[in-house]
Design a protein around this nucleic acid. Sequence first.
DNA 1: GATTGCATGTAAGGGGTTACATGATTTT
DNA 2: AAAATCATGTAACCCCTTACATGCAATC
Lengths: 175, 175
Amino acid sequence: MAKDTVSVRHVILGLLTQRPMSGYDIKQLFESFNWLIGSPSYGSLYPALHELLNEELVAMEVIPNQDKPARKEYHTTTKGKNVLREWLQQPATCDTPLKPFLMRLMLADNYSPEGLVGYLHQRRSQVVAYHADLQEKARNGDEIEDLGQELIFNYGLAMANAELQWLDHVLEQLS
Amino acid sequence: MAKDTVSVRHVILGLLTQRPMSGYDIKQLFESFNWLIGSPSYGSLYPALHELLNEELVAMEVIPNQDKPARKEYHTTTKGKNVLREWLQQPATCDTPLKPFLMRLMLADNYSPEGLVGYLHQRRSQVVAYHADLQEKARNGDEIEDLGQELIFNYGLAMANAELQWLDHVLEQLS
DNA sequence: GATTGCATGTAAGGGGTTACATGATTTT
DNA sequence: AAAATCATGTAACCCCTTACATGCAATC
C-alpha cells in the first residue's frame, strides 16, 4: 500500500477503525456525501476490503441475520491501526482529481448562450438538491457520529452555499 | 469517443476549437488552474492528441522555431467541431471524482488533535497560495482570453474564499 | 406480482499516472 | 556549469468503473 497516495483502501481502513462496518455500510456512508466527495463503486470497494483482509489489516465477522441477509462486518486489527497511523503521518500530496464540471465549464465559449445557461442551471439544481439533502439530515437530527462527518457536513454546506451564490451571480449576468 | 463521459480528449478538442495550441500550451493552461480543476499528465495529454489526430478531429501544423524547439500546433477540424457540438449537447452526468482532501478529512477522528490541526493548516496554506496566485494574475492584467477562463477564474476565487473562511472557522474552534 | 432495499461479489476494460527517455535554449 | 524552461514522446502499471451475476426480504 503506497505511503503517500490516498486510495479507497486507506479511507476504508480509517473508517473501519472508527467503527465496524460492512461493505454495504461503507457504500451508504459515501453515498450520503456523494456530491461532495464521490462514492467508490462496489467494484472497487469489495476488492479493497478483500485485500485489507488478506494483508490482515482488518478482520471479518459474519453476522447472521434472521430476516435480512447475512452481513460481513469488518474491523481494523492492531496491525491495521499501526499502518493507518503511519500513513496519516505522511504529509498529504496536493493532487487534485480532474473535475468534470469545471472541465466542461472551461469550454464555455463553445456553447451557445442558451446551452451554457442550460448547463449552469443543471448544475444549480444538483447543488440545490444536495444542499436540501444536507439540511434535511440536520433537521431530522441524524446524529453525526464522528468529527470527520461533522467537518464534511459543514464543509459541504459552506461549499454548496458559495457555489449557489456564484451560480446565481453568473446566471444573472448572462441574462 | 464515449458520448456522455468527460475525458481529457473532449476538453482538449474544445480548447483547440477556441484557438490552436501545442500539447505544451494545453498543459500550461491546465497548470494555471491546477488546484481547482486538476491537470492531466503529459502521459495522457500527448496520446490524447495523437488519437484526436488519428480520428481527424484535429489537424497538426509543425511550426519551426529558430531558437526554441519546434512546436506542433493543433487545431480542430470541421469534423471535430461537429463531434464537439454533438457532445456538448449531451446532458452532463453528475459524477464526482473521489477527492483526496475530503477523503482524508473523513478520518478526522483517527488523527491526534495536533495532527488534524496540522493537516488543516497544510490545506490552508495551499488554498492561500492558490488564492494569491489568482489575484496576482488579476493584478498584472493577464488578459483572460475567453469566457471559460473568466468563469473558472471567478469560480476559483469564490471557492478559495469560501474554503478559507471555513478553514479559519474550524481551526478557531479546534483551539 | 413487481419493484425497491439489503447484501455480496467478479471480469473486462477504460482512463489515467509514473517513470523513463531525449534534446535544445535560456537564465542563474 | 547548473538549473530551469521549452518541447515531445513511450511503456508499464494502477486504480477504479461498468456491466454482469446472485439471492432473499419487504413493501407497493
